[in-house]
Design a protein around this nucleic acid. Sequence first.
DNA 1: TTTAGCAATCATCACATTTGAGTGCTAACA
DNA 2: TGTTAGCACTCAAATGTGATGATTGCTAAA
Lengths: 347, 347
Amino acid sequence: MDLSERKKKILSAVIETNIKSNQTEAVSSKQLQEEYMPKVSSATIRNELNALEEMGFLTHLHTSSGRVPTREGYEKYTSELMEEKKLSESEKETIKSNFSSKLLSLRDIIEKSAKTISKATNYTSIVYAERANKAIIKDIKFYPVSRTTQLVVVVTSDRVINELSNLGTNDENDLNSASAILRDLFVDKPLSLIINKDFRDKVVTKELQKYKVVFDKVIEIIESNEQNYLGDISIAGKDKLMDYPEFNNTEKLKKAVSLFEDKDSIIPLIKNGDDLELSINVGSDKSGLEDCSLVTITCNLNDEKHITAGVIGPMRMDYQKAVSVLKEVAYTIENTLAENQGDENER
Amino acid sequence: MDLSERKKKILSAVIETNIKSNQTEAVSSKQLQEEYMPKVSSATIRNELNALEEMGFLTHLHTSSGRVPTREGYEKYTSELMEEKKLSESEKETIKSNFSSKLLSLRDIIEKSAKTISKATNYTSIVYAERANKAIIKDIKFYPVSRTTQLVVVVTSDRVINELSNLGTNDENDLNSASAILRDLFVDKPLSLIINKDFRDKVVTKELQKYKVVFDKVIEIIESNEQNYLGDISIAGKDKLMDYPEFNNTEKLKKAVSLFEDKDSIIPLIKNGDDLELSINVGSDKSGLEDCSLVTITCNLNDEKHITAGVIGPMRMDYQKAVSVLKEVAYTIENTLAENQGDENER
DNA sequence: TTTAGCAATCATCACATTTGAGTGCTAACA
DNA sequence: TGTTAGCACTCAAATGTGATGATTGCTAAA
């Protein structure tokens, strides 16, 4: 269903006016005429508005109120009508300046990104680093802490697991030979393999028998980590939602705050099924928040690691701003890293 | 200034009625008479209320409204009038059942504690594990990740630091001999010493010269961690605040949500200057949230590590509940750990 | 197809009125 | 001296009323 040029212009105008106003204000035919199309009369615009309403893009609160976009209206706008808006140089500069030139840890990167996006857009932002599919074990070491507590450190290509445990012995020699045996068995093997029972059964033999407790504990730690570790996530600007009249009722706000508190439910939201670079989800049907929109972008940190950055806000969101900020941040992430992976050394 | 028995009873009754009602309801003389003291007339109670008001423990919104406790009233109540309320066995059981019998990591303990407290009290809870004063370096290792990125792992008696860095070389031999030298120098030395410039200057000599870049990077990582690591903190039930009419205005809510987002400002709040076991702070003057109360308890995880658990809620908080839940959790923490430090092995 | 003109609609505001819960005070009582 | 009944007074909250103005839908003419 294609719209006439004038209808496109009017729908865009309604939506953009709506976005710019701080209130959830309805837009009137007169206002549109004055600000967008002084050549035609308000009556003409009214006719067009009526048509757009019949198509389902606009709606009406009551007879004498102006027009408000529907979910479908926003969707039409983001998917077809919206033009790309470049950020000003100073805005770009501000974003870049948030990332220091140092090579940051993954945690740093996602936290900085989330803060930056939230500050630049004035919406809540979520940045998520998926865990690697195939983490390889690099090292296993034990450190005595107290008589009955040992620190277990498992270094993988994806993350460093460290947990206190009771390995059943605190003898330094025992710990050393146990870890040596485990290293022999596990280093350069994928985490997923170790959880596999067949592999384990095949392996527990001879020397290992002596360190059965240690072996079990380490498996337990790896298993629990492998099951619980979903990736790294950072959310910033949770309070930003409250600036928008859409969230002026406590019910909605409560839902949002609970959602943000629970990683397990927020990760599926932001996880991009496909490898879309940019995705705009209007009136997020994907559970969570009603009448909210979610804009996400995915970029590659390296061959193994994807980062997905997103903006959550009211349906009446400044999509242009959100998109351009996300693009800039994604660019900066890939770029910052590229710089550091070059051969030059800072300092 | 001591109160007559009847005044004590009336003040307690006003406060407890106030706490029990979901609304911020003022309490009337008639209500008090019916529910607490049918032997005397409402007029008598009115006289007493008047006296309590003159002492500053109660107040009045307008002539014909009932009485509401002042901050001073709540303080008097928590410090002198409130009686200890034991939890029922089933409540205790519920709390205990949240902690599995496994020896949990510190992170697990504080997260579980926070969730448990929040669930049991219906208030927001904060659990904080202070960092150890004297962390000792136990190990330093490097792992090649990509051509220009290495994983630096520094194990200390207090935590495991791991960061990606560019050490300037990816040669396994180089990395190994560099880490060997650093281990020789640093293992069993306190973190604080390593940051000390004098010590560093004394140490950078002969063999180390070759690994100047590596040395600098490691120092940088340790230094930054030592400065930024404040301890582990977990906050649960941020949405609980919204159940209380006190937080029905967006302004307050926004403040609360922003506060919770910022670790740096929340830690000083909960940090107990003295080693008080239990502390009740009515109408928390300690920055942060106005008209809020903070109840905290401190317990020892081991000789080095203290855990502080707290409840944040409106001044009109169920202090009895908060105190008994906190006590139970503190007991469980110390106990759970004690069990695991015993000699028996589960399984 | 566009436009002017006009009746109809309805949220919003200001203002008045009513209602009822609750206190303060006074005078009498124990 | 402490307690009580009774009553006037106060004030928030609920309810009602009417005016205002923005905006639409419709019609008929250009």
